[in-house]
């Protein structure tokens, strides 16, 4: 079954111009990325992408790109069954790591996902995170601020790219 997602990617205006010109994204290769190597989007929520540009990256000039993503092989960690199994894999990897020279290392999510994707051809990984750097009145509500992130592993899944908004107010 093909699943379709609308993803918003925040970046500097200069990078956005390059992406629009080349009609392709450059995947992140940092190993400490939240969901491993790939191209990152906030699902259905451009304001999260703006927040990322302004608060996290502190870009003076930024742009938000809107994309349509289609994928068949999705590792969806918002689903209970997949999350439970993901946890089971992490525990097993951690157990085996104790026998290696990496026994002192903390296994980050992104590395565990890279490992899984080495074994299986997932095209997209999807997960929910609490919004970083924001506290909330948990004595008033138990609903935390969250964001859904999508990491596209296979560039062919990105079907369209357009500029959604930029820092000077343009579209």
């Amino acid at each position: 079954m093909v699943r379709v997602f609308i993803g918003f990617h925040g970046t500097s205006k200069a990078s956005a111009d390059m992406i629009l010109l080349d009609k392709r994204f450059l995947p992140s290769n940092r190993e400490d990325e939240w969901l491993g190597k790939g191209i990152y989007f906030f699902e259905d929520d451009p304001d999260q992408a703006i927040d990322w540009c302004v608060r996290a990256r502190k870009y003076k000039e930024w742009a938000i790109l809107k994309t349509i993503i289609e994928a068949q092989e999705v590792l969806d960690l918002t689903r209970k069954r997949e999350w439970d199994m993901f946890l089971s894999i992490i525990k097993q990897l951690q157990g085996k790591m104790k026998q290696t020279k990496y026994k002192g290392k903390r296994l980050l999510n992104g590395v565990a996902i890279n490992f899984i994707c080495q074994q299986f051809p997932y095209e997209v990984v999807r997960a929910v995170f609490l919004v970083p750097g924001r506290s909330y009145p948990y004595d008033i509500t138990n609903i935390p601020p969250v964001q859904i992130q999508i990491c596209v592993k296979e560039e062919r899944c990105i079907k369209s790219i357009e500029q959604w908004r930029c820092s000077n107010g343009g579209f």
Binding site: E31, W34, G36, A56, T100, G104, L107, V111, N114, P132
Partner: peptide, 27 residues
């Protein structure tokens, strides 16, 4: 297994007990 972990990026992981370096890291 060590080679596969290395390919997945294990060497960039912090040591156990170390703090992640940014509040923007989920850890």
């Amino acid at each position: 297994f060590e080679r596969d972990l290395q390919r997945a990026g294990i060497e960039q992981c912090p040591d156990i007990g170390e703090e992640a370096d940014s509040e923007w890291q989920p850890e």
